[in-house]
Design a protein around this nucleic acid. Structure first.
Lengths: 223, 223, 223, 223
DNA sequence: TATGAATGAGAGTTCATTCAT
DNA sequence: AATGAATGAACTCTCATTCAT
């Protein structure tokens, strides 16, 4: 445990640094050298902990899912005394905040699902496929990727049971719609630095509108 | 004029090929060599017409905006006898179809606005900035980038005037919300190859739900 | 033809240089950079002509077999009026001289047959296998690898027919025995630089003994 | 002595493991890590006992010569009541069997003599030279490298004295000829895995032919 | 205009060796 | 004695871009 946790600490510090550098420069524009420099260590050391750049990214992806799961559980717990609708609204708020604060995580999760979708059919480039799949984190991520979705679906069910959600669409569809809206929101805002407006719209107004639309749509039995 | 149009023809054939190759393999995974091969010409020739890979991408971006503008005008024209709400719904349908059929265009437009947003503050990597801005297409794209938005906004106005749209939000906000939803939709579906479902949801159901939500939200005075 | 031969000239000049550098430093100890420097060109240019270091080595291997074949044909032609035994002796002399003058060729041919033997059973390391087999020269070499052997075997047959060779062993066995002797001879002499003795034995005496043993064994009906 | 022998035991177990791994994968393809893993110890520990990878290989080389010497002595002892010719034939049989069973030893001995020959003139790469010579085993090997040769030569002398060997060539030359034949034999058979034929020739036939040729040549006063 | 050739600055990865404990 | 970490120089191969003709 002692040894193992020491190693874990180091691994985590590497992931920490990698997150920062990838966030700033993007995955493709970042050399392993950059990550090493940010840590004051040598490239070789990073490879001692992570077998490849892809694997390092996968580790970040794993963190991303874990963090989202934590965020979701916290949200659910905070709204457990309110209606299911408010539970869902809480999830949406959390999701938006999470995605804005961790754009890299948002990208990583998207990359992952794109990757999984693409490879389940054998398209895409062979080498990337292998590099990804050989990552020790790949399976781990696969194991937890659906947890956020399930949390979301459960809240929909709760809202239907308590009558706060009248929308009759398939829960998964509602999730996809919500996810897409959040994804588009952060994509359009990304690399915006400290900007607070886009197209003369206050980003906070947009954020609020996503929430209010969610309410509107969930309450509407015909939506 | 004669020379110029000859040149234009050549340029367009290069863009045609580049679109195909980029669509298939993605921009980053495509070498200039690949584009040249697809054209049966040499790399050098491409550089005779396009100063850089970025510039070529910018040319595609320009086409993307042009194509979207055409699509939007056609939609507006096709629904000019219907209500403003239906005009907007028509735009949404067109937008979705356009994005699905031209994922590369969708990406290019997103890249462009991300780029513009990022550079107006001087963040991002220096080299890309220069390469992009030196592109002869850069200014051209800047000139037309807002036309789709304006078309969209005009339909909202029309809908408000004819009473079919009761939603009181700022038109730009409605546009952003719509754009984000479509963007998320295609992003989550991209690289899906021939898949027709995601998370057990029929993609066509999702598409329909985007439309019906649009109607719901636009009609709702409190949304 | 003009273009093609120009390219061929360049390719050959690269192979020329590579031969020299590999001969001096060995394949493994030579960087592509070294070959490039020897040519006064850049690494990239070499990769323009040869897809990999392995492929360059394969090109050398191809040359090696071609050169041996030429040498054998010349020898056969020079001894066509003598007995089959003398024909074979001539081949041996040629073989020895060839191997001494072109140690790299000797090594390359040995590597090739070792490689072929090893892969026909699927042993060896996967990556090397692929790199080798992807070489455009691989198939070419396969096509000609047996020609020297066949020339050798034909001379044995001729010698049996004219009564100069009485040895009754399987021709292939005689070839293997001869090959092994020559191989061992050059291996033990390799990297000897300008040395003329080994173990106080004059190399020329050794060379002569190989020849005389060949005669002795071929003439002997009981050997 | 106690400490020293403890150390010796450890050293030997490392050499044991290294032999296995080098035999399987070859020296160049083996990482120190692989050897460590095979031993269940760390790389650092290996470096505690062996100053370098080369040094470890030198230790193996030393073993190789020792083992060959043992083998030769045993053979001589087993044939001491037979003629000198049969003694030599026995040595050849042993040599062949030894080389086939210990291909790594065969390679190591060849590398050693190539190395010695090359450095006595200062050719070859500087770094390897230093690494080799700094090896504590280097001198040890030098001290015993000629023993197998001397054993061989003594048997020739014995054969001449008892009249069983009529061949008048310099003994060292006979040794070189024999060594080369065996070396070529194992080289051509190496990496052949479990193959029992080469060029449609049974390897056992080849083996037998080497022996019978030896007899033929040694008996022949004019060879 | 067009092309084949050439360039050269990387980029990821490897691994023998060293070091701190 | 032993180990896990750390190092950093190599090394192959890539590819946008440029150049000479």
């Amino acid at each position: 445990m002692a040894t193992s946790s020491k190693r874990n600490i180091k691994e985590n510090s590497i992931i920490d640094a990698a997150e920062k550098v990838f966030s700033r420069q993007g995955f493709a524009n970042t050399k392993m050298e950059d990550v090493a420099k940010a840590l004051g260590m040598s490239k070789g050391t990073i490879y001692f902990y992570f077998s490849s750049k892809e694997n390092l990214y996968m580790a970040i992806t794993y963190r991303a899912f874990q963090a989202l799961i934590d965020t979701f559980y916290e949200s659910v717990s905070a709204t457990k005394d309110e209606s299911g609708l408010e539970g869902l609204v809480g999830l949406m708020k959390s999701f938006i905040a999470f995605s804005e604060e961790n754009f890299l995580y948002s990208e990583a999760m998207l990359d992952f699902i794109s990757f999984v979708r693409s490879t389940s059919e054998g398209s895409l480039d062979g080498k990337i496929t292998d590099a990804m799949k050989e990552s020790s984190y790949y399976e781990r991520v696969k194991d937890i990727q659906n947890i956020p979705i399930n949390i979301f679906l459960k809240e929909i069910e709760r809202g239907r049971n308590d009558g706060s959600i009248l929308n009759k669409q398939k829960p998964e569809l509602i999730y996809l719609y919500a996810w897409a809206g959040v994804l588009g929101f952060v994509k359009l805002n990304s690399t915006s630095g400290k900007k607070t407006t886009i197209l003369k719209v206050e980003i906070s107004d947009w954020r609020n509108y996503i929430i209010s639309s969610t309410r509107t749509l969930l309450r509407d039995a015909n939506a």
